[in-house]
């Protein structure tokens, strides 16, 4: 068996690429024809409601679940056919801890994981552990949820993998530790050429780190684009409209609120500002104010009303 790992050179600039990825659990569809594109070196934030399919996507990439249809590739390698090689490139923080090594000390568990990753940097693991306040001689099971989260982060980052798959990485951490964790992640990105694919409920936290956004809604990818593009094309418009005005069908309306009199609307619209303003004007509406949205609001614009309201 060849010892070197070769990626498919035709993979180009994509760290993660899925094509029509579909995964069903019985009658539930967790992923429905997902075409994920994560460019190399990107920090890609996956957004979506609980049960939208985010964790399933990670599991398919790690070959912990097998897709019903479609393909998934990491650095050009099929995740189903070359699972171990793919996993050697990944630092994975799962949604829930699945090991039962509660009786091991944190230090011992780190050494255990280190044995599986030839690229493990023990000094860096030490640095990360200290920065996150890990107590290495404490038994894993005796720690809090936050402590086990931090341990998982160290396990994922210490071997400087080319790809980080982080499923709710700051979940269970208090605000101070959350900020420290993200600062550590920023440092890690500065030191190591890494692609990050992470899912989060705290979108606002990731605003400054993310440069790509994907919105997953009931298993379908509702939107996927660079963050700058998202913020440029999703804005809140305050418009003055005549009575009984309805939005023209060619306008992508993500949310709308009417004032009491019905003559002023606030709507979230998707499209280049100039284009949208022109269309509104054509339809008889006058734009009085355009507000750009934060990442969270912009991403939520692609989720159904009940969720984003």
């Amino acid at each position: 068996m060849s010892r070197s790992t070769h990626a498919d050179p035709a993979a180009g600039a994509l760290a993660v690429a899925t094509r029509g990825l579909t995964k069903r659990y019985g009658r539930e569809t967790a992923l429905d024809g997902v075409d994920l594109r994560v460019p190399k070196g990107a920090v890609y934030v996956l957004v979506g409601a609980n049960g939208a399919g985010k964790s399933t996507l990670f599991k398919v990439l790690m070959n912990l679940e097998r897709a019903n249809d479609g393909t998934a590739e990491v650095f050009g390698m099929d995740t189903a056919a070359r699972g171990p090689e793919v996993r050697a490139q990944v630092g994975y923080v799962p949604e829930h801890q699945h090991h039962r090594y509660g009786w091991m000390t944190s230090g011992r568990l780190l050494r255990h994981v280190a044995a599986y990753y030839p690229a493990w940097d023990a000094a860096y693991a030490d640095h990360l552990g200290r920065a996150l306040g890990l107590r290495l001689d404490r038994r894993v099971g005796a720690g809090s949820k936050g402590e086990s989260r931090r341990l998982q982060l160290v396990m994922a980052l210490a071997h400087r993998p080319p790809l980080l798959l982080l499923d709710e990485p700051t979940d269970g951490l208090d605000p101070v530790v959350r900020r420290r964790t993200l600062a550590l992640l920023a440092e890690h990105l500065a030191d190591t050429p890494t692609t990050v694919l992470m899912s989060t409920h705290q979108i606002y936290e990731m605003e400054s780190l993310a440069d790509h956004v994907g919105v997953l809604n009931e298993g379908r990818l509702a939107a996927q684009m660079p963050r700058d593009e998202l913020q440029r094309t999703v804005r809140r418009y305050r418009v003055a409209v005549p009575d009984g005005w309805e939005a023209p069908p060619d306008l992508h309306v993500a949310g709308m609120r009417r004032s009491r009199g019905g003559r002023e609307l606030q709507c979230t619209l998707v499209g280049e500002e100039r284009d949208v303003t022109a269309r509104l004007a054509l339809a008889g509406a006058e734009v009085s104010e355009v507000t750009p949205l934060g990442l969270e609001d912009a991403a939520l614009a692609f989720l159904p009303e009940e969720v984003s309201a």
Partner: peptide
């Protein structure tokens, strides 16, 4: 970006 791919561990390890 040039990322050298990491090798998996030897089965022996």
């Amino acid at each position: 970006m040039q990322t050298a791919l990491h090798p998996p561990p030897h089965l022996r390890d």
